[in-house]
């Protein structure tokens, strides 16, 4: 039982990492109906920038670890905001009237571009996250959970709640919803559609930066390639929960994390050794295909025709 509980915790933490990235995906998709393939890469850039700052500070200033990490985040967030803004402005906006294939291909291009740029800047080696955060662990009914794990779980919930409040309660949120539903009408009603879209990218990228730092802190390292798989899994999570739906992204992320953890942990026993944890990455794709085929609107998404 404690093993099962541990797998559940593993899954929830992994899932909250997915959820953090999925929130950004879902925001952009909710408004533009565009898969921002480069979102995972923005996450990676966030981690890399923060790590550069943290690496420069550690050992030179006598500050507590949390403060140093916070300073890293403070630099990474505006960098990613600018990056998100630029990506939308340069690569997506000019293609709004082009056939659907065009922005999709640019998105892939931007993703490859960022990955290789990061590789040239930060090198191919894994960048180490210095061990400056608490690594204390707690025992819960025979399973262990660390401070950082609890923090990531709580943080992703807080960010989600914040975003929901933003979209539901503020003026900007209303403009976003209006833009998502009918851009032309929204524009006629005095909504500056371009600014709303830019802001969506900026907010999404800020969250991506935070997510990137959390991922790097959690696993103790960052790498130019980390954004790709993360982005893919996060996208799956967003689709699973119902793309465009913030609570859905959270739910989808947690669910996917748990599916992967339990899957990798138990598939060997279930299939009598026929399949093992080597198929861990297959689960995510399998779930994705199943959801898209059976319930394209996702778990929490509303049923909209032509959505998928």
């Amino acid at each position: 039982m404690d093993i099962f509980l541990q797998q559940l915790i593993n899954g929830l933490v992994l899932g909250s990492v997915y959820a953090l990235v999925a929130l950004g995906y879902t925001m952009v998709y909710g408004i533009l109906e565009l898969i921002n393939f480069a979102h995972g890469e923005v996450t990676m850039i966030g981690a890399m920038v923060a790590l550069s700052v943290i690496g420069a500070l550690v050992g030179h200033v006598a500050l507590p670890g949390v403060v140093i990490v916070a300073m890293g985040v403070l630099v990474a967030v505006p960098v990613c905001m600018l990056l998100g803004f630029t990506i939308e402005r340069v690569a997506y906006r000019p293609l709004r009237h082009a056939p659907r294939l065009a922005p999709l291909i640019t998105a892939i291009g931007v993703s490859i571009l960022l990955q290789n740029l990061a590789m040239i800047i930060w090198g191919r080696e894994y960048v180490k996250f210095p061990p400056i955060l608490s690594s204390a662990t707690h025992q819960v009914a025979g399973a262990t959970i660390s401070d950082l794990q609890i923090f990531i779980l709580v943080l992703s919930l807080l960010i989600m709640a914040g975003l929901v409040a933003l979209v539901q309660k503020t003026k900007l949120g209303r403009a976003m919803r209006a833009t998502a539903q009918a851009p032309q009408v929204a524009a006629l009603m005095g909504v500056n559609v371009n600014s709303v879209i830019s802001l969506t990218f900026i907010i999404g990228s800020a969250i991506a930066a935070i997510a990137g730092v959390m991922v790097a802190a959690y696993y103790g390292l960052a790498h130019y390639y980390m954004g790709f798989m993360l982005g893919l899994k996060a996208f799956t999570a967003a689709v699973l929960g119902g793309i465009g739906n913030l609570a859905g992204a959270m739910l989808g992320g947690l669910l996917l994390g748990v599916i992967e953890s339990l899957g990798a942990g138990y598939i060997g026993d279930i299939t009598g050794g026929f399949m093992g944890s080597n198929y861990q990455d297959v689960f995510a794709f399998f779930v994705l295909i199943l959801v898209l085929v059976l319930r394209p609107s996702g778990l929490l998404g509303e049923q909209v025709g032509e959505r998928a």
């Binding site: 992994l14 390292l221 980390m226 138990y266 060997g268 080597n278």
Partner: peptide, 18 residues
């Protein structure tokens, strides 16, 4: 136990717990 991961993975908690 015979477990597997990939050469790009960073999360091993599931297989380690198993």
């Amino acid at each position: 136990a015979r477990e597997y991961t990939s050469d790009k993975a960073t999360d091993f908690t599931a297989i380690l717990t198993a």
